[in-house]
Structure formats: structure tokens, C-alpha cells
């Protein structure tokens, strides 16, 4: 049997498969389709200091092999997450990855400070949401801003801090280096790619917010490329995500340089995709004589 365990920033994950923030709510819904304890970790819906209503509908548009979304970080706020959702998630034997956002540097600091004292395993700091007016991606696309917000947050962090990067930049390695030099313990990438669709009959954008974030299999090669580039640029662990569908995709993402992965949009097509992919990963490793998943990380031969 292949060894699937991964040590991610000192947190022991039973396998490298986690769920991508924003696609999994707080786990209740998918828990009806599979045992959440099968997952290495759960990335929860992005949290903000207070409740956010999100954007009006339509919030989704289908694309060839993907979707655009503009949910706009609808969430109940960090306090209700801590009070109501952590006890639910702790019933399962899986790591909790709390995803946090803010509108200002001070809000990011406050979020990281508060979530550090809660019972979560990893903190994922989202500086890459394309669907909110303030904060979000605005923090994640300029190295100086990345340094400022990450170093401020890192000072308050008592848990490993993962910084989630935006692919909507010219050079992702520049942003990755800025995050790591400011103290990021790990990086997750990629968030969604900014996109747009137009209804040609009405000549209006399909999404209420005009533009939205592209995810799904369409973005997979972009994600693999960026993980590969970032792996060469920095040495912190990488949580690779973006369009992963199958066990073979997981192998590919690990080879590119990821230490663990997150699956998201594929679950909208098949709610049991993560457990199917895990079984495929195990079978692939057995068939190829790969004893530990850790052997695969960054093992691409160029």
C-alpha cells in the first residue's frame, strides 16, 4: 500500500487531497456524499471579519471545461464560523484549513490573530479573490503590497500561514518570493483567472459583476505551469490547485512541485470526485512502484 501521508508545514495530513476554499462550503453538503474523514484536509469557504452577503445573481457562467464565478465571498463572518462550524468539522478526522480575507491590512491582521486562537490546523490567507471591490486580489498582485500584508499577518499568526496567490500577474515567482520573504510558511496556487462572458442576444455580461474567476479543468495547465515556476523560485511547501479532476491530475500537480493539492470545481460535476481521485492516486502509485507520495513532489524531469 502506498504511503499517502504528507507533512505540510508541520501539520500531518493523512493524504495530499484537500478541498479548495469556496467550492466546499463548510463541508455539510458534500458530507452527504462521502465521509469527510477521507480527506487530507478541508479548505473552508473564505471568511471575512463580518458577514458578507456576496454579489447579486447571476454568479456563475459555464465555459468550455470550466466556470466563471463571482460569488463575492458570501460567508457568515469569522465569529459564526468559529462558534458553529469548527465543532461540526472537528467531528471528522481531517485538517481544517481556515481561509481568511480582509479589506485592509489591519483586517487581515485581525483575522489571522482571531483564527490563530481557534481550533484550526492551517490558515490560508486569501490575497487573490477577484470578486470583491476592496482587498482581495488588489493585495496579491503587487510585490510591495504582498510584503506589507503578509508580514503584518505573519506577526499575528500562531498557526502555519499559507498565502494563496493570484494567477492574474505577469510573473508569479516575483509575488511568491515577496510572500515568502514576508514570512509565508507555505503558498497555495492558483486562485481563479479573471475572465468574462457576454450573452450575445442581450449584449450584456452574463455575470452580475461583469467579470469573474475562471476555474475548472480549463485552468489546469496554467496551474501546473505556475506551481512548477514557484517550486523553482522558493522552498516553502506548495498547496497546488486549479482544475484537478483525477488521480492522474494529482500526480501531475505533485510532479510540478506541489506537496499537497486541493480539488474544487470538479465536485460540481461529481460530488465524490475527491475520493475517486484518491483511489486513482493510490492505484497509480502501486502500479508504478511509488512507495510514498512525497517522492513525487517536484520530481518532474525537465
Amino acid at each position: 500500500m502506498a504511503d499517502l501521508r504528507v507533512n505540510f508545514c508541520g501539520v500531518e495530513l493523512k493524504n495530499p487531497v484537500t478541498t479548495a476554499s469556496g467550492t466546499f462550503g463548510f463541508g455539510h453538503e458534500y458530507g452527504e456524499f462521502f465521509d469527510l474523514s477521507r480527506l487530507g484536509g478541508i479548505g473552508v469557504k473564505g471568511l471575512t471579519p463580518t458577514e458578507r452577503l456576496g454579489n447579486p445573481a447571476p454568479r456563475i457562467a459555464e465555459t468550455p471545461a470550466g466556470i466563471l464565478n463571482c460569488v463575492g465571498l458570501q460567508n457568515p463572518g469569522i465569529d459564526r464560523f468559529i462558534a458553529e462550524q469548527i465543532p461540526f468539522l472537528r467531528q471528522y478526522d481531517t485538517a481544517i484549513i481556515a481561509n481568511v480575507s480582509g479589506n485592509t491590512v489591519e483586517e487581515y491582521e485581525g483575522m489571522v490573530e482571531k483564527i490563530s486562537d481557534a481550533d484550526v490546523d492551517l490558515i490560508e490567507m486569501n490575497i487573490s479573490c477577484p470578486n470583491v471591490k476592496c482587498g482581495g486580489m488588489a493585495f496579491g498582485t503587487q510585490p510591495a503590497m504582498v510584503e506589507e500584508v503578509v508580514s503584518a499577518a505573519k506577526r499575528k499568526a500562531k498557526k502555519p500561514l499559507i498565502v494563496k496567490l493570484s494567477p492574474n500577474v505577469t510573473d508569479i515567482t516575483e509575488i511568491a518570493r515577496a510572500a515568502v520573504s514576508a514570512g509565508a510558511d507555505a503558498l497555495s496556487l492558483i486562485n481563479t483567472l479573471l475572465g468574462m462572458r457576454i450573452d450575445i442576444e442581450t449584449r450584456k455580461p452574463i455575470l452580475s459583476n461583469v467579470m469573474g474567476g475562471l476555474s475548472g479543468p480549463a485552468v489546469f495547465p496554467v496551474a501546473v505551469r505556475m506551481v512548477y515556476q514557484v517550486r523553482k523560485a522558493v522552498s516553502v511547501p506548495i498547496l497546488g490547485m486549479g482544475g484537478i479532476r483525477t488521480g492522474r491530475d494529482i500526480v501531475e500537480m505533485l510532479l510540478a512541485g506541489a506537496d499537497a493539492v486541493a480539488m474544487g470545481t470538479v465536485m460540481f460535476a461529481d460530488p465524490t470526485a475527491p475520493v475517486k481521485a484518491l483511489a486513482e492516486l493510490e492505484a497509480w502509485m502501486d502500479a508504478h512502484g511509488v512507495k510514498s507520495v512525497r517522492e513525487l513532489s517536484g520530481a518532474v524531469e525537465v
Binding site: 453538503e29 447571476p58 456563475i60 464565478n69 452574463i206 465536485m267
Partner: peptide
């Protein structure tokens, strides 16, 4: 327009009246 269909992805928002008179989704 719907995504996951089960309540996880939050895309199929319907504007409702909140108890405080404001809009909620």
C-alpha cells in the same frame, strides 16, 4: 444559474427579505 446544486458553491443566489428589512441571499 446553478453550480453544485447542493448548497456548497453559493452561486444560485436569490434575493430575500432579511428580518431587519435588508436584503439577504
Amino acid at each position: 444559474r446553478m453550480g453544485c446544486g447542493i448548497g456548497a458553491c453559493l452561486v444560485c443566489a436569490c434575493a430575500l427579505k432579511a428580518e431587519n428589512g435588508e436584503t439577504r441571499y
